[in-house]
Write a protein that binds this DNA or RNA. Structure first.
Lengths: 201, 201
DNA sequence: CACAAAGGTAAGTGGGCGCTTAGATTTGGC
DNA sequence: GCCAAATCTAAGCGCCCACTTACCTTTGTG
């Protein structure tokens, strides 16, 4: 193990992060295939070749973005549902958290929900696993509420899918310059989630 | 064997339609920028140059797909809500229609919901107008139910957005080989819509 | 100070892209 | 039977793509 060269490393880390951030912006606005590595490099203030100093390929940038995004969401929704509260409170917390992420980080959310077809098959399978884990968290909270008699829905799995679906699609239509704030949407969707699962009053 | 004799015009029309259909499939699977005009021509059984005999450009193919898709949806949802029925029945019919389209025609639906950024500014504005009209139909049915006292929701506009959002996102996750049929989803979402708008029992 | 390691770039490389052109073939009205 | 119009393609044009190579610069350590 050699000692780190802090200043040099810090510069490299900053460039690496700027390239990732530029890739998120560009992929979100123009799609993976609509974005060139020159676009990304220029937006990060570097030469086209610099992309390949810090990342193996354009696809690896997308993969890194997708892993980070899905990991954050899985952590947040797991945390939100881990409490000792009632099923209703836990579903509301999960939806609130999920909606807040997709509104506040809608740029990232667009990339990690709509550009996955550009991943290699191996990387896609990895991300699919993370997505399945997120689905499972939401479905289990809904199913638990149904088992305990707190919820009433004819199909808990479809209900859970609908709740996640609402959050994901929010990233598609949400605009920062609109009149609906992330917080007001989180409030509305948390209440709506209780209607969807048929939470008893 | 016998060659099928067809008129020049009929042959041209069929080629035109096959190119459009191939474009829908390809844009849905790989995105607009991930699809080459050679991909489209090959899938339609024609040479690369044939694309330009029938369509002005790759973007014009996307535009034609988007106009047709949005017109169909606007017509269907308008028809579904035109009846003399109660607000609850009209909202249920609108959601049922919308969900059926997005499940059955999920390939087209993916293209017309996720590839619009590739349109020219002028074409995008045209499509945005059609989308606004669809939004308006759904919002007005919800608002009417609230005015008449049939519905109870803290925010009719957000409720209408959520209903459309559920339908659109369905096109993203729906798979033909899954266990959920378009009809079962239409049933579930129609019931769910009544919960979302707070339809009184 | 020497020098290895890392950051960074100028200048490509081969290849695929959207689209055009020139012309062959087929058709149908007169 | 003639020819205008339509369908369709082989060939190719100029451009931009993802990625590479060869090399220079900056940094920190022994």
């Amino acid at each position: 193990m050699s000692e780190v060269r802090t200043s040099t490393q810090a510069r490299g880390d900053r460039s690496r992060a700027r390239l990732l951030d530029a890739a998120v912006q560009a992929f979100s606005a123009k799609g993976f295939h609509g974005t060139s590595t020159r676009d990304i490099a220029t937006a990060a203030g570097l030469s086209p070749a610099a992309v390949y100093v810090h990342h193996r390929s354009k696809e690896e940038l997308l993969h890194a973005i997708a892993v980070r995004g899905h990991t954050v969401i899985l952590g947040a929704i797991t945390e939100a549902t881990r409490s000792e509260a009632t099923p209703a409170e836990r579903v509301a917390a999960a939806v609130r958290t999920y909606v807040l992420f997709h509104a506040r980080s809608h740029t990232t959310a667009r990339v990690i929900n709509y550009e996955l077809a550009a991943l290699t098959e191996e990387h896609f399978r990895e991300i699919a696993g993370l997505r399945r884990a997120i689905d499972t968290v939401m479905r289990e909270v809904v199913e638990e509420g149904v088992r305990s008699g707190d919820f009433d829905t004819p199909d808990p799995a479809k209900a859970a899918t609908a709740l996640l679906s609402l959050g994901i699609d929010l990233a598609r239509w949400y605009r920062d310059d609109g009149s609906w704030t992330p917080d007001s949407l989180a409030d509305f969707y948390a209440d709506l989630a209780l209607r969807v699962v048929g939470a008893r009053p």
